[in-house]
Design a binder for these strands. Structure first.
Lengths: 344, 344
DNA sequence: AAAAACTGTGCAATCGTTCCCAAAAACGTA
DNA sequence: TACGTTTTTGGGAACGATTGCACAGTTTTT
């Protein structure tokens, strides 16, 4: 079962020209006379000629495709980032190949290597929460694969990075909890090794410090798998509650929704007494109960900026040596007034 | 900035063999002596040889890639379907390229044609809610591109299709509303032209009929863009409320969440008085307020089955002429008891 | 009028694989 | 020994596109 299309050779034969002439005419090169160009273009149009991207890739040794690794596409933050990536990539005539790590380092590595063998021209990646060893990425990078990190970035890797202003986002959320009168504010977060975990922890600490609240490490819980497993969350909640928090600041999308879910499931009687502020890009927060204050990341923009940086690396004439880390501001969406809460 | 890897030619030169021999050894063809095979394999391993998939694609005239078109990946149903697709595709050594139609026919067509020109070996597609004209798909199909439809399928196109049991799912949901005492049950649904819109409407009607409730077309509202635009939903809600429904059956993921959102926004005072049952694969329903009864589609399985069917078409020796339509059962998840509703 | 420059086109190599066809090597049989 | 078989290997043409180089034919320069 094959796909029949006309090739440059067919056109050349039909028009009594050489393939080189046809190729050049199609690519609108200056050496070709207007007349020939017109004839070729018209004929190509007529037979609905499409250049075979595979042949071109082989010749030019690049595939016009960008690999994306996220932990999960069923995550509002990441799917919005992907939309941002696509918006730029398609406009520049790249296509994207998406793979999911499901927060597993092994899966991540497998996917990256699979993509690399598929000749992607560049890679956009948000590390899995498990990942600590990034030597395999360094390897590929060393071999010439441009890489741009976003959201979860390693600190010992020299390349472009795009992140949200995690410090400020966390500071704002924590401050909001403090200002609404909460005294014991817990912090639920991902793997300690992730860049944004660290930054968000700092923002949280800074807000506490500003209001002279002592930082209590006991009340900070880490989820190694970023909340991929419910048990992880339930465990964290179980450990947290005895410490009687009246507010929780949560540092990621999955953890935020997962934590509320765990709270409702395990301790419904206290769930509505605890104020929650967390990172999430869910567009359904307005429906949540208990409601929460959310820190929204500029996901779409993160995707766009990362893609622009990546394409600039791919298309750079000479190896890029100056790298930038772009930091984009988050937005604090405060809990809706009781209006929304009246239901049920 | 290039990516340097060793090729078959390099291996051949290093080992003093011909490229044909090396190629055969690597592909484990029978004509090769065990000894040579061993030497080649060992050396290939040593230099970490990876076949260039682009060159192979060119030669074999296929790309080992599958195109996917969905309206949006930021939709639980579709992201679960994609997970199902990936699980099969990767195991069979295909990779997937995902594109989004955003419920726009134009975008859908553009994407499909882009994918086709990228030499995908087959296409998995859920039509956009706008789509009526599928001649362009017929065209590609006629040229030899295998296509499998899922979720939203056209009825006048002979190929494999995979759908949920929309009739039964709708019947169950509607019956559930009736059995919980609702008298005036509205129906909010997508574009009239979509296959599943029709089937779901039939299920709704059948449940009403079973309980001798007269069907009232007035109380059925269609959203042409599947709820992509909020205004569409708010308009529908506005038209529905004067008819005093005490239950609403909603026929798609986006509409379900969108409708609750619109209700809360425009008429918070009645929102909690109306029982809602709707199709949704959101894993966050437990957090919703007002809570709702949901019809969950076997999204992951739909993806798996569709991919198996597609790959069987791709790899078929001769054109496939017998097609099947697989129908998978949905699951009704009833509204949680008031426990969950106590919050807020 | 000869030399130089410019136009427009074609030839052929190339990208990395695969595979048809033939050649060489190894073996068996008469 | 000579011949036919079988097994193993190599040569080289694809796949479809791009591009450096060469070569006509025309125009400009000296």
């Amino acid at each position: 079962m094959r796909f029949e299309t006309s090739t440059i050779k067919d056109i050349a034969k039909a028009l009594g020209l050489s393939t080189s002439t046809v190729s050049r005419a199609l690519r609108d090169r200056y050496e070709i006379s207007d007349e020939t160009k017109k004839v070729v273009l018209a004929y190509a149009e007529k037979v609905n000629y499409r250049a075979n991207p595979i042949a071109r890739s082989l010749k030019e040794r690049r595939s016009y495709s960008i690999g994306i690794i996220v932990s999960e596409i069923a995550n509002n933050f990441f799917s919005q980032v992907i939309n941002g990536i696509e918006s730029i990539a398609y406009a520049r005539d790249y296509h994207v190949i998406i793979a999911q790590s499901h927060e597993s380092h092994k899966q991540e590595k497998l996917n990256v290597e699979h993509l690399a063998s598929r000749s992607i021209d560049g890679l956009l990646i948000a590390l899995s929460s498990e990942t600590q060893d990034i030597d395999y990425l360094r390897d590929l990078y060393g071999k010439g694969l441009p890489i741009v990190f976003f959201d979860r970035v390693p600190d010992n890797f020299e390349t472009h990075k795009v992140i949200a202003n995690n410090f400020k986002g966390s500071f704002d959320a924590t401050e909001h909890l403090i200002l609404s009168g909460k005294k014991v504010i817990a912090h639920l977060t991902s793997s300690e090794t992730l860049s944004n975990t660290k930054e968000r922890l700092e923002g949280y600490k800074a807000a506490l410090a500003k209001y002279h609240i002592e930082f209590n490490p006991e009340i900070v819980k880490y989820c190694q798998h970023g909340g991929m497993h419910n048990i992880e969350l339930e465990q964290a909640v179980k450990e947290l509650l005895p410490l009687k928090p009246d507010g929780i600041f949560i540092s990621s999308d999955r953890l935020t929704t997962g934590c509320i879910m765990a709270l409702k499931k395990t301790n419904p009687e206290v769930a509505h007494k605890i104020a929650i502020a967390g990172f999430t890009n869910s567009n359904l927060v307005e429906l949540f109960s208990p409601s929460l204050t959310s820190v929204k990341q500029p996901a779409f923009e993160i995707g766009q900026v990362a893609t622009e940086l990546l394409i600039s690396m791919i298309e750079a004439k000479r190896p890029v040596t100056e790298f930038e880390t772009r930091v984009l501001d988050t937005e604090l969406v405060k809990m809706q007034k009781m209006l929304g809460n009246r239901f049920l």
